[in-house]
Design a binder for these strands. Structure first.
Lengths: 138, 138
DNA sequence: GCCTCTGGACTACGGATGTAATCATAGCGC
DNA sequence: GCGCTATGATTACATCCGTAGTCCAGAGGC
């Protein structure tokens, strides 16, 4: 099982841009970041790009005198890793309480609910390792 | 809206022990941590306790010559804050994709599924907020 | 050809984090 | 009474993170 590098808060913003637009130059990444949030400083973005390369979350290819970036980890992998880590940290690994928590926040539209119901129906037949029950009651 | 202090990975382990067992002394916290994971070093735990007090996540009361700790933030608050932050970071704030992701991992028992279905049904009755549409896209 | 500008490389720096060791002090066993 | 021990206080320290600034070399304008 491949281990993905740990992506930090701000790094996620960069990764999302790259995943959605690769191959992409630093200049364009910076432009898109700034479009979404004008407080992004170009230097900061470049530093983070370098760090992501060092972490092997991104790769690049010199193209003339600039670099063109590519993800070296998929969004799926990273989402899965971050999700596992979150689940473990906050819910002690217990999946159902976590889902319960989110569903209870009731910010779901009727359509969301239908969608999820359909998903649950599909999921009904799969083998399921039991999740660790949390010590606290929900 | 009260802002809860940011609880880090290892701090969560301590907080879970305190939430489940307060009021509780440092010695007992350390004992419980070590029981769950023998690699916990007492000194490390004490450092983290001090930090959690500084962050006002915990409070204490001298009881003879030892401290008795109490949470100063509820588990609910912290779970909600951590969940929001996770949702924002990894899913850009989009709730349904997040739920979809977890349900798709198919680690749910049939009973979990039933439970969730029941929850969804409840949610459907109680005002599906089509007026309070969130700003983020699904 | 020279100067400027841009893009990547390297440097900076305070605060957070994980992991612990050292210090000082107050009881407790003897 | 006195030293050992447990407990909280203080200190340590390498990394990581967010946020930039400085340095240097090549490309282009003129």
């Amino acid at each position: 099982m491949k281990t993905v590098p740990r992506i930090t808060d701000t790094e996620w913003e960069i990764m999302r841009v790259v995943w959605a637009n690769h191959p992409i130059t630093a200049a364009e990444i910076i432009e898109r970041l700034a479009a979404a949030d004008p407080t992004w400083h170009p230097k900061t973005a470049r530093t983070l790009l370098a760090r992501l390369v060092r972490k092997k979350a991104l790769g690049y290819e010199p193209q003339g005198r600039v670099y063109v970036y590519e993800p070296r980890v998929t969004e799926r992998e990273c989402v899965a890793a971050a999700s596992d880590s979150f689940l473990e940290r906050v819910f002690g690994g217990a999946l159902t309480p976590m889902l319960t928590h989110f569903v209870e926040r009731r910010r779901l539209t009727r359509r969301d609910l239908d969608e999820l119901r359909a998903l649950l129906d599909q999921g009904a037949d799969s083998s399921a390792p039991k999740t660790r029950r949390p010590t606290w009651k929900h």
